[in-house]
Design a protein around this nucleic acid. Structure first.
Length: 606
RNA sequence: GCGCCCGUAGCUCAGCGGAUAGAGCAGGGGACUUCUAAUCCCAAGGCCGCAGGUUCGAAUCCUGCCGGGCGCACCA
């Protein structure tokens, strides 16, 4: 019953890169007009093909020298035996760009610098502003995605080790659901296994009422420790615990009732934590290890029938291809232990089989720490060999690094214990409340409390999501709660500040504009940034690299600030004012949407 | 031993085949009768761990080292 984020694992820092098994289907999506890169891609690809005589990548990217640059002419030089500048010129001749670009220049060794025309940007922004979905169309072919995340252990406290899985998994749920995929949240609760013998016996010792009381208070650690202490020191207790495990696995009704009590109380507690953390997990999302109990024997039988099952030192195992141990021998997944019990390998295989064959999922995400990378590689390989993971379905280990303290070691309390998640949340909200009170004393108590909650929780989540998830990151209150830099409070403030423009001006966002002026450089920069939203969302949906979305939002907020410095809004008049108000509103909506996708609230005032 | 990950400015991090390597923080210098200064501007700060290689072009790809960390059967 050691959950996926077991402290044993978390204690050990590691940086493991997630494998992204590129399956056959990045989800199909509609071409969006509100994506400048895609527009250029569509125009340049045929031109490159014509010039090269074969499909050739235009190699488009954002540029410091123009809005975009296409570098695809350079690699063609050798292939075609021509000067790359001439190739670039040829491509430009064949590409229809007049209606999009005000300038197309060839520079350096053969870069094509592309600058959009105001007349092209104006209606695109107007169109984006007119849509609720901000230029991001729902997918045409939704995936059925199972996201396996959070995974706390029954009768054990949720601690910082569960933070990343919960936060990253929650962001994945929000993003993929928003894009129109069918998302199934799978909270792989550690609710089964040998420790339940001692936990149930301890429960009996102190009485059900007292046990329920302790657990409902969230005092899970002391409950677990007390059980553990007796188990380690009291032989009679140890024997009772062993007997109890047998009864549990044998389906003894009284034992199952007590087990259920433990699970129920723990689930209530976890739900309270999720609520405080503002994550989407509900009581319907618990798919604990015990859920697969009935499906373990069938897994063994089917592996046997397929000829994949081997006997090794008395245990039933499978040897997925391509893995060896320290002696160079094949590395097994233990399916059934020598004593007849099942290990996590069996549960994980049963879960894959269930998810692909019964839930008909075609994308499986495992938001689990990087030390388990090899384990998942092996399980995925075994599942492929068994035919449970086919080319139509893909599994992705969404791995992540550790959270470090200021000393560069795994984050712990000063006493050296793991830090409870609730304590972390309390501190974040308390710090945020102090900050908000100091910055804006005019807010009423209720608003201030609500803002503090959004800022505090947002700071924790954003600190996590704005870092490349495969790397470790340093947990630092000062930095994550700063209103400067790439932080949640900065983005939230940028959003609130825009909303205050409308409040102060007593105006509503203009609707139904056919064009939004982007003649000022700061307007142009902001417009181009806004139109990049769709591309970023699509990329992140595939890679689950949420720090890219975070970086985008920060760049957008920066672009807005520059615009706001240079371009008066309420003091402007006529069409200019309308147009700028539209830019303000659109920026605020993209910021709010982006933050929402990350699971972070965007207060309208703060 | 085999395998995997990380090493970029003083600090925290982006960039991962394209032009002079970018932010934020800290430190230096400026800008407030404000559309929220909870802000912005300027300057300074880099043998992109080291050495080879591939390429028209390498922080980015390959190989080998160095440093830090992790995994390698009945715990998940």
């Amino acid at each position: 019953m050691i959950g996926r984020a077991s402290p044993v694992r978390i204690r050990q820092p590691a940086w493991w890169v997630a494998i992204v098994r590129a399956g056959p289907g990045a989800s199909a999506r509609l071409h969006s007009m509100a994506n400048l890169e895609q527009l250029l891609q569509k125009r340049l690809t045929p031109a490159f093909e014509t010039v090269a005589g074969a499909p050739a990548d235009p190699s488009l990217r954002r540029s410091q020298h123009a809005d975009f640059q296409a570098d695809g002419a350079l690699p063609l030089a050798r292939k075609l035996g021509r000067n790359p500048r001439e190739i670039a010129a040829d491509v430009v001749r064949h590409a229809h760009l007049d209606d999009l670009c005000q300038s197309v220049e060839i520079s350096g060794p053969g870069f094509i610098n592309l600058t959009f025309a105001e007349d092209a940007l104006a209606p695109l922004i107007a169109e984006m502003a007119g849509q609720g979905r901000l230029g991001v169309a729902p997918v045409t072919q939704p995936d059925t995605v199972v996201i396996d995340y959070s995974a706390p252990n029954v009768a054990k406290e949720m601690h910082v080790g569960h933070l990343r899985s919960t936060v990253i998994g929650d962001a994945a749920v929000r993003l993929l659901e928003w894009l129109g995929h069918r998302v199934i949240k799978a909270n792989h609760l550690g609710d089964w296994g040998t420790p339940f013998g001692m936990l149930i016996e301890h429960l009996l010792d102190i009485g059900e009422t007292e046990a329920a009381h302790e657990l409902s208070l969230g005092d899970l650690n002391s409950f677990y420790r007390a059980a553990r202490a007796k188990f380690d020191t009291d032989d009679a207790f140890k024997e009772r615990a062993r007997t109890r495990v047998v009864a549990l696995q044998g389906g003894d009704e009284q034992t199952l009732r007590l087990w259920r009590l433990l699970v129920d109380e723990s689930e209530k507690y976890f739900l309270a934590v999720y609520d405080r953390l503002d994550v989407c997990l509900t009581e319907k999302d618990f798919f604990g290890e015990s859920f697969y109990n009935d499906r373990l024997h069938p897994v063994v039988q089917e592996l046997d029938r397929l000829g994949l099952l081997r006997d090794s030192e008395g245990a039933k195992v499978v040897f997925p291809q391509g893995f060896t141990n320290r002696d160079g021998d094949p590395l097994p997944i233990i399916v059934q232990k020598r004593d007849g019990g099942f290990g996590y390998g069996a549960t994980d295989l049963a879960a894959i089989r269930y998810r692909t064959q019964e839930l008909h999922a075609n994308r499986l995400l495992y938001v689990v720490g990087l030390p388990q990378k090899q384990h998942f590689e092996m399980v995925f390989e075994a599942a492929r060999e068994a035919g449970w993971l086919t080319t139509a379905a893909r599994a992705q280990h969404v791995g992540f690094g550790s959270i470090l303290g200021p000393d560069g070691k795994i984050l712990r309390s000063r006493a050296g214990d793991t830090i409870k998640l609730v304590e972390l949340i309390d501190e974040a909200v308390a710090r945020a409340a102090a900050l908000v009170a100091e910055k804006n004393p005019d807010l009423d108590d209720e608003t201030r409390a609500e803002v503090a909650r959004m800022v505090g929780i947002g700071a924790i989540k954003y600190a996590d999501l704005s870092n490349d998830r495969v790397k470790d990151y340093v947990f630092d209150w000062q930095r994550m709660l700063s209103f400067d830099g790439n932080t949640a409070p900065y983005l939230q403030y940028a959003h609130a500040r825009i909303r205050s423009i409308f409040r102060r001006g007593g105006v509503a966002a203009p609707a139904g504009l056919s064009a939004v002026a982007v003649s000022e450089p700061a307007e142009r920069t902001l417009a181009i940034e806004l139109l990049a939203f769709e591309g970023v969302v699509a990329t992140v949906a595939e890679t689950l690299e949420f720090h890219r979305l975070a970086a985008y939002l920060y760049t957008l907020a920066t672009a807005f600030t520059a615009f706001y410095e240079k371009c008066p809004v309420l003091r402007a008049e006529g069409e200019t004012r309308e147009s700028r108000l539209a830019l303000c509103d659109l920026t605020a909506r993209v910021l709010a949407r982006g933050l929402t996708l990350l699971g972070i609230g965007a207060p309208v005032r703060m």
